Simulated assay, not measured.
Amino acid sequence: MSNATANTSKWYVIRSKPRQERRALANLENQEITTFLPEITITKLRRGKRTPITEALFPGYLFVQLDDYEGKFYKIRSTYGVTKMITFGDQPATIPDALIEELKQINETSDSIKKTMSEAILQPGDQVQINDGPFAGFIAKIIELDGDSRCIVLLDWLQKEVRASFDYNQLRKA
């Protein structure tokens, strides 16, 4: 891309159909339009296991870089997965290049964190060490997940196996 093109191109905000950000992204990229969809990886409880899920950082929105807004407006608006281009009155919503660059950096660090997260996610059957509270230092075994933030563990206390509930941030893999 030449410097003249880079200086005249701007980032615009696109509204996608519900949960179709990736479809809109693929269809816009097929039209050779520069696009960006910031994503984040979070852990959710799925079928009794905590799994990392990647979803849009801004659900329903993505960004396109255009140097010819008027020429591509109708082409983008009629793309599968796209609802509309965001405007303020008759002026399109633009995003500064610096903000897009920051979001891209966050997206890249999220990708590297995603790999380590999948290894660190606690699952039933894992041996864990309790970090704080009255049982700090005890080794326990996860027997059940209790929602998005807690789990049930089995620990040996006074020569008895005792069930207890702990927050995930109180535990680490042993």
Rank of each mutant, 00 (worst) to 15 (best):
Met1Pro: 04
Ser2Gly: 15
Ala4Leu: 13
Thr5Cys: 11
Ser9Ala: 14
Arg15Phe: 06
Pro18Met: 10
Glu21Thr: 01
Glu21Ile: 00
Glu21Lys: 00
Ala24Gly: 04
Ala24Tyr: 01
Leu25Ser: 00
Leu28Tyr: 05
Leu28Glu: 04
Glu39Phe: 00
Ile40Gln: 08
Lys44Arg: 15
Arg47Asn: 14
Lys49Ala: 10
Lys49Thr: 12
Lys49Glu: 15
Arg50Gly: 08
Thr51Ala: 10
Ile53Arg: 08
Thr54Gly: 03
Glu55Lys: 09
Phe58Arg: 03
Gly60Ala: 08
Gln65Lys: 14
Asp67Phe: 07
Lys72Thr: 08
Ile76Ser: 02
Arg77Cys: 13
Ser78His: 12
Tyr80Ile: 12
Tyr80Gly: 09
Val82His: 00
Lys84Ala: 13
Met85Asp: 04
Thr87Trp: 08
Phe88Ala: 15
Gln91Ile: 14
Pro92Asp: 10
Pro96Lys: 11
Asp97Lys: 14
Ile100Lys: 02
Ile100Gln: 01
Leu103Asp: 00
Lys104Val: 05
Ile106His: 03
Ile106Val: 13
Ser110Thr: 02
Ser110Ala: 13
Asp111Asn: 07
Ser112Asp: 03
Lys114Trp: 01
Ser118Trp: 05
Ser118Tyr: 08
Ala120Arg: 12
Ile121Lys: 00
Leu122Ser: 01
Pro124Leu: 05
Gly125Met: 08
Ile130Thr: 03
Asp132Pro: 00
Pro134Thr: 09
Phe135Asn: 12
Ile139Glu: 15
Ala140Ile: 00
Ile142Met: 05
Ile142Trp: 07
Asp148Tyr: 06
Ser149Ile: 07
Arg150His: 12
Leu155Cys: 12
Trp157Phe: 15
Tyr168Ala: 02
Tyr168Pro: 00
Arg172Gln: 14
Lys173Leu: 15
Ala174His: 11
